[in-house]
Simulated assay, not measured.
Amino acid sequence: MVSEQKTPEEALQDSKVVAIENSGTISGSLVGAAAEIRRRRRAEAIQLSLRALCMATSVVSLSLMVTAKQASSVSIYGFRLPVHSKWSFSESYEYLVGVSAAVAAHSFLQLLIGSSRFLRMSSLIPSRNHAWLIFAGDQVFAYALMSAGSASSGVTNLNRTGIRHTALPNFCKPLHKFCDHVAISIVFTFISCFLLATSAVQDIIWLSQH
């Protein structure tokens, strides 16, 4: 068998082709890695935004509920009777305040830790165990918010809780400010629940990809 001898010019040309192919492979790998980093950073920025929004809505819900109180009077059969309502008169509202405070603290802690890792260019979720822990926390607090919002929404008869020892069929007419505060607080509670559920979905997506 006769081996083919290459001229110096052909050998030089082949070496150039190999160098170009290797350069293209390395360049493609770098571009792919950079794109992956950008995608991860966008996902982490969205996660931090969800945390910030959840903390804000929980604080708003908490603030509106603890300021829900009003004193007024109502005419029943020609008699003017004083009426007074406050959030602490209802166990459902106290439950909502407690859950909202816990969610605000949870969101603030996750936002603080996540922001610190994000600024250091580290991954927001360092391990699968950490991801499962965050997912479990988000799930528990989301269900707690749903429970608190539903319980507060179902409090329609406040003759025993909202207005003590006073029979008043339509208490929202003389105590409209109190009712407005409670209603808006419940709305923000459900918004917080939705944001936590969205965060939990992102946790599942991360776990499915790692």
Rank of each mutant, 00 (worst) to 15 (best):
Trp87Gly: 03
Arg42Glu: 13
Ala144Asn: 03
Tyr143Leu: 14
Ile46Leu: 12
Ala71Val: 11
Asp138Cys: 09
Ser73Pro: 00
Val31Met: 09
Asn159Tyr: 03
Ala33Trp: 04
Lys69Pro: 00
Gln70Cys: 04
Ala45Leu: 12
Gln110Ile: 05
Thr57Gly: 02
Ala34Asn: 05
Ser85Asp: 05
Ser152Lys: 05
Ser127Ile: 02
Ala136Phe: 12
Ser75Gln: 08
Ser85Cys: 14
Met65Tyr: 01
Tyr77Asn: 13
Ala101Gly: 12
Ser107Leu: 04
Leu96Asn: 11
Gly78Arg: 04
Ala142Tyr: 04
Ser27Lys: 14
Phe118Gln: 05
Arg38Trp: 04
Val103Ser: 07
Asn159Ile: 03
Leu64Gln: 11
Gly154Cys: 05
Ala142Gly: 03
Val97Ala: 15
Arg128Trp: 01
His130Pro: 00
Val140Pro: 01
Tyr93Met: 10
Ser75Thr: 14
Gly28His: 07
Leu30Pro: 00
Val97Tyr: 04
Arg39Trp: 01
Ala148Asn: 04
Trp132Arg: 15
Lys86Glu: 14
Ser73Met: 06
Ser127Glu: 01
Ala52Asp: 07
Phe141Thr: 09
Ala105Ser: 13
Leu112Met: 08
Leu62Ile: 01
Thr161Leu: 03
Asn159Thr: 10
Ala144Ser: 11
Val97Cys: 12
Asn129Thr: 10
Ser153Arg: 06
Leu158Arg: 06
Ala33Gln: 14
Thr25Ile: 11
Ser150Asp: 09
Ala105Val: 10
Arg41Trp: 00
Cys54Gly: 15
His84Met: 10
Val60Gly: 01
Ala33Pro: 01
Ser107Gly: 03
Ala43Val: 09
Ala148Thr: 04
Arg51Gln: 15
Arg40Val: 07
Ala102Asp: 09
Tyr95Cys: 02
Ile134Phe: 07
Pro82Trp: 02
Gly32Ser: 14
Ala136Asp: 11
Asn157Ile: 04
Leu158Gly: 09
Cys54Glu: 13
Leu109Asp: 15
Leu48Thr: 07
Gly78Met: 05
Ile113Gly: 00
Val155Arg: 04
Val103Pro: 02
Val74Ala: 10
Val60Asp: 07
Gln70Ala: 04
Ser122Asn: 11
Gln139Ala: 13
Leu50Ala: 05
Ile46Asp: 11
Ala131Lys: 06
